[in-house]
Each structure stands twice: as C-alpha cells, then as structure tokens.
Amino acid sequence: MTALGAPRPRGGLDKRTARKGWLFILPAVLLILALSFYPMIQAFLLSLQKGSGNNLSYGGLSNYQRLPRDATYVAALGNTFYYLIIQVPIMLLLALILAVMLNDSKLMGRGIYRTLIFLPCATSLVSCSMIFLQLFSNNGLLNNLFMRWGWVSEPIPFLTNAVYARLVIIVTMLWRWTGYNMVFYLAGLQSIDHQIYEAARIDGASVMQQFAKITVPLLRPIILFTTVLSTNGTLQLFDEVRIMTAGGPGVGTATLSWHIYRSTFEQVPRFGYATAMAFTIFVMVAVLAFIQMKVGERT
C-alpha cells in the first residue's frame, strides 16, 4: 500500500496486482515447463533421430516420411478410428440416456444404480481387461455357457477373429467408461432448472421433445467436454488391446499406442520412429479437439 498523498506508481495498482498474480502461478508454470514442455521438445528432437537401440543419429524428417509406408501404422490408424467412430457415439449416447433416467427423482434406489454404473470406473484398466479376457476367451465363461446351453457347437472365436475381437474391445471400453461419462451428465442435469421442464410440460411437450429441445442444448458444454475427453482417450487406447489380443489376430485389433509400444519395447527398439508416431497422435488429438470445439460452439 502506498502512503496517502504519495504519487501513484506508474502502472497503478492493477499492474502490481498482476505482478503478484504472476508470482502465485509461477511455481505451477515452472513445473509445467519442466515436466511437460521440456519433455515434449526433447521428444520432438528424438523423433528426428533414426536408428535402433542406443545407436541413434539425426535423420531429419525421415521418420515422418516412413509413416505412410508402414503397413502396420496404417492398419493401426484404421483400427483406432474404427474404435473412435463406433465406440464414442454409442458410449456418450448411452451415458446421456442413463443420466436422464437416473436423474428422475421419483426413481426408487437411484443412488444404488448410480453407484453400480459408476463402479467399473474404479477398476484398473488392467484388471478390467483381464476380466473380459476371461469372459470371452475360447474356454471362457461365455463360451462355456453357450456350449452347455447348446447354442453353439464350437467355441465362438471372440478374440481370435478380428471382427469379433474389435467388438469385444468396444464392449470392454463401454463397460469401463460409460459410467464415468454419465457422472458428468448427471452433474450437468442438476444445474438445469426444474421450472424449465415444468413450463414445457404445461405447454404439452413430450418426453422426447423435452430431451431434444431442453436437455441436450443445455448440456452442450458438457457433451462437448466429454467428446473431447473420450476422443483423446480412444486415440491413445492401449491397455485393453495389449492384454486381451496383443494386437492380434495379425494386426486386426492393433492400435497406434500398441504399435508405438511394440516398436519401443518389444521389437528391435526404434525410439525415434516410435516418438514420431506418438507425435502424430498428438497432432490428431489437437486437430479433432479443435474441430469438435468449433462445431460445439456453433449455435
């Protein structure tokens, strides 16, 4: 505080407060710079290096030029978008419907339902994948039951047929993540005023109309948020695939993250190339998030 009557310092109070504000966020900024941006720059430099193991040398953009010729990368890219396009819309729609149903104050025991649907989220991805592996393997629970009931004579190749295996992975993701997204929607629904629905009912709006004309528009920021989050998560899909199918059969269920992991740790390691692949995911996430936000903002 300056003494009364003294000339005000140039820039005034605002600038000084601003300076103090910067001091407050400085630790966080420094941490982000050191732990996030510095590794990103290092990773970019690594992505410009070619060679295997510790025998690395700068090779310009050669790693990025390799990408389109890498059949596994192209296949993994296709699979990743397959998961994204099928799984994310189903999951978000399901989460929204569940949230609306469970938001009904007349529903008995809705706390129990909410907990049950959210609970898979508390499972680690590894255990969740192991459980689904047990369910769907050739001598797993489902095949055992189907055979006992006489529905099938041979086990269904859930995990060894690429088409089925991709669906099983989608089902696993749905089970694991739907509840998570539902919680966001539930929180959003609480903030919508009841009176709006009451007014709509008095005007004779049906349940579907209320859902489409009130719930969805008012939840738009949250729908946008969950879409960006799920897109980001699906593009980095790894655990389920690694554990349940190891990318197989062939590269039928392979994802980009699985290919990155394999090129880094399982095959003759090519760190530079793997990092270049990781950067392509980074760019895709950024571009998709940007598009989604542009579309989401439009009214």
């Binding site: 390799r66 010729r69 890498d70 062939g250 095959q267 003759v268």
Partner: peptide, 25 residues
C-alpha cells in the same frame, strides 16, 4: 492369419517380405 482369412499365399508372403524389409530399413 491373412491366409486363414482368404488371402493367397503369394500375396501374404510378398507383404511379409516387404514388411520385414521395411522394419530393417
């Protein structure tokens, strides 16, 4: 795996050859 799903042996082995050549580049 590709042959099991109907690809011809020639095609499948040609892609395996180019895939491994690619990895070793």
């Amino acid at each position: 795996e590709a042959i099991f799903n109907g690809t011809s042996i020639d095609d499948a082995l040609n892609s395996a050859q180019s895939a491994i050549e690619f990895i070793m580049e």
